[in-house]
């Protein structure tokens, strides 16, 4: 049975499931490195998902759906940026407001545009896998190729995009002037201010980048995984992503790898549900798995992970 579970398909699915988490987690990383907590990722992702579905349905194009999701994510994150940076609101409360707003706005628009609550029609054009190679045949070489083909070459565009984002963000954060400044904003904004860095502008940019990534995560859910929008379809992924960001110690590649772990848990629970007859464990317990894992991971790692020093603290220009 183990052979039926540990298939190439399982690992490919882990990568797919990890993608929305990773994008949001990297968004969380950039945001928190600049000193702003982003509890709003859940809501940003949900609004991104809705925008992707609405634009996809209206235009028939998956790519325009992705663009709309990014734009919507940036727009919503701007509200968070304005209230936490300019109005100096409590960032966790502001993020919570965005999450409630996202539930309300997507539900409201759903009824306004489509006349019913629940789920939209399927988008006519999802984003298709980038490569189309046949699987290998019999024999060792054939099997090896099948594994490589499913894990590396079977994916849709945003899955590859997420990997690229992780690598580029890691490079930018540690190898560029922008990255050094970003980290300074979250560690010691006063020092950054003293050497002439514009604290609120830097934070605004980081929050909006996290909005773009959160929107992209929502687009992945609709355009590459589910095919339609359902109310509250993000189901806590924004919060799991925050945990992945912590587990990844506030680094983009770390966030990606942590998301892979959660993605694997999700892929595994989906796979195990196929074997319900043999395992005889209620499906609800499988569905709990990603959430339980998140708590376990947080419990195991937190003491050793240190958050950016100034995260969550509004900057008062002295």
């Amino acid at each position: 049975m183990l052979g039926d579970i540990l298939t190439p398909d399982l690992f490919a699915s882990a990568l797919r499931m990890a993608t929305p988490l990773a994008l949001a987690a990297i968004g969380g990383t950039l945001c928190e490195r600049s000193g702003v907590v982003n509890i709003a990722l859940e809501g940003i992702m949900l609004i991104g998902a809705f925008a992707a579905a609405a634009a996809g349905l209206a235009t028939g194009s998956g790519w325009l759906g992705l663009l709309a999701a990014i734009a919507a994510g940036v727009a919503v994150s701007a509200i968070h940026a304005f209230s936490s940076i300019n109005l100096k609101s409590d960032q966790v409360v502001s993020g919570t407001a965005i999450n409630i707003l996202a539930l309300g706005v997507t539900g409201f628009l759903m009824e306004l545009l489509y006349g019913h609550p629940g789920t939209t029609d399927p988008v006519p054009q999802m984003l298709r896998p980038v490569f189309h190679f046949p699987n290998g045949g019999e024999g060792v070489l054939g099997t090896v190729w099948t594994w490589i083909n499913s894990i590396v070459f079977s994916h849709t565009p945003i899955v590859y995009l997420a990997i690229a984002v992780a690598v580029i963000a890691q490079w930018a954060m540690y190898r560029t002037r922008w990255g050094l400044r970003l980290r300074a904003l979250g560690e010691h904004p006063r020092a950054a201010d003293t050497v002439g860095i514009n604290v609120s502008r830097g934070r605004w940019i980081a929050v909006m980048m996290s909005g773009a990534l959160g929107g992209m995560a929502g687009a992945n859910l609709v355009l590459e995984q589910v095919g339609s929008f359902t109310e509250n379809m993000t189901n806590g992924r924004g919060f799991i992503a925050l945990a992945a960001n912590i587990f990844g110690r506030w680094t983009p590649v770390g966030s990606y790898l942590a998301s892979l772990l959660f993605g694997f848990a999700d892929a595994l629970q989906i796979k195990l549900q196929l074997f319900r007859a043999e395992i005889d464990i209620p499906p609800q317990f499988f569905l709990m798995l990603p959430y339980v894992l998140t708590v376990v991971v947080l419990a195991g790692v937190i003491g050793r992970a240190v958050s950016p020093a100034a995260v969550g603290v509004p900057y008062e220009k002295g």
Binding site: I79, S83, S89, V93, S94, T96, A97, I98, I100, L101, L103, G104, V105, G107, F108, M110, E111
Partner: peptide
């Protein structure tokens, strides 16, 4: 759902 929107605005 307009109620959720009003709620969110109150929180903001």
């Amino acid at each position: 759902k307009i109620i959720s929107i009003i709620q969110a605005v109150v929180i903001f």
